[in-house]
Simulated scan of single mutants.
Amino acid sequence: MEKKDKVLVYGAGGVQGGAVARRLLEEGYIVHTIVRSADKAAKLEEQGITAFVGDLTDASSLHAAHEGVSKVFLLLPVDYNLERNRRFIRNTVDAAKEAKVKLLVVNTSAFNPDEATGVTLYDIKRELIAYVKESGIPSIILKPTLYMENFLVPGVLSNQTLAYPVPADSAIAWISMEDAAAYSVYALNHPELAGQILPIVGSEALTGNQLAEQFSTALDREIQFFSLPVEAFEEALSPILGKDTASGLADSYKWIGLNTHLLPKPDQVIDELRSATPGTPLIEWVKQAVDNGLLAHAAGENRDT
């Protein structure tokens, strides 16, 4: 296959960025990425990804990965230290500008409103978007809502309960990470979309009770939805993600609980994107997660009852 352009994919060693990198490799692109260790770089090299060791807080360490790159997919790590986040933003965007890349596609990895909220997660995303715009780099901003993969967090799905910190009666359009990757690759292939901020969500908006119905059908057992108190969610995540990250996520879910009406709806996805990636229905995502062993424990509980 004839090789296409070189694309730098931030986060190619993770789930979200990795899904983008795989799709680009399949299309014949040369994929660069930046990781923090030589061991991680070696593993990605085995997958056909050219990996450079660097640190987002060290601007000089990012330049080598940009050599010969025409497009950049930017996905920043979750970090609730504002000053460190600002260094991430400045260093990555400045490096792309210095490399004179033709297109920068940014996945904000979370929905963020246009107005300041006082919520760290959302306000730092607003700063990211503003800095990208100021850079003058042709750019496409993608805004997802909530990822279906959040249902894989330990404790969210138990034998008979789906517990999540969103209101039971509010319809939310969830999106799978694979669909988000498909939208991202589409954007990288369509520079004419530059200048736009595009919501990317699934094809259906579901209330908590409708989520439970979909899980019940897919798992062939009765599942009830429980609107988990944000405080309980924070307490459960703290030993897994650390206190600061758990607290930061809790603040974002408090805002969501009061503002679900502001989240993008399926009909807000532009026709061009929706035609290319219709979106995976939740029930299909659950079945795939079971088949891939991602929900093996929860699915297995059904066999024991």
Rank of each mutant, 00 (worst) to 15 (best):
Q160W: 13
G18Q: 05
V15C: 13
R87C: 01
I137D: 01
N107M: 11
F111Y: 14
L282T: 01
D39W: 11
L152K: 05
A21R: 04
K102M: 10
S203H: 04
D5K: 12
L142C: 01
D114W: 06
V7E: 05
S37M: 00
R22A: 14
G14S: 11
P167D: 03
F52R: 05
P229Q: 03
G248E: 06
I34W: 08
R23G: 09
M148D: 12
N302S: 15
F233K: 00
L188H: 07
T161H: 13
G18D: 00
V201P: 01
L152V: 07
I30T: 15
G195S: 01
G48D: 01
G118M: 07
P239A: 03
A173M: 05
K265N: 01
L74K: 10
L228G: 04
G208C: 02
L74I: 07
R23H: 10
S203P: 08
A65E: 09
S252G: 03
D267C: 06
D304Q: 13
L294A: 09
A12S: 04
D5S: 14
Y29F: 12
S184Y: 04
L273H: 02
H261F: 13
S170Y: 06
F151T: 00
I49V: 13
L152Y: 03
V72R: 05
S139Q: 06
A59I: 06
T108K: 02
A96I: 04
G195M: 07
G18C: 08
L262R: 14
Q288V: 10
V290P: 01
L193E: 10
A64S: 14
Q47A: 12
A187V: 07
K43Y: 08
H63F: 12
N292R: 14
G195L: 04
D179F: 01
W255D: 06
A12Q: 02
Y164M: 07
T50D: 15
I197M: 11
A289T: 03
L75I: 14
K100G: 11
D39P: 09
F215H: 00
G195W: 02
M177E: 13
H63T: 14
I240Y: 00
L142W: 03
A65T: 06
R303Y: 14
L56Q: 03
G208Y: 03
H63A: 15
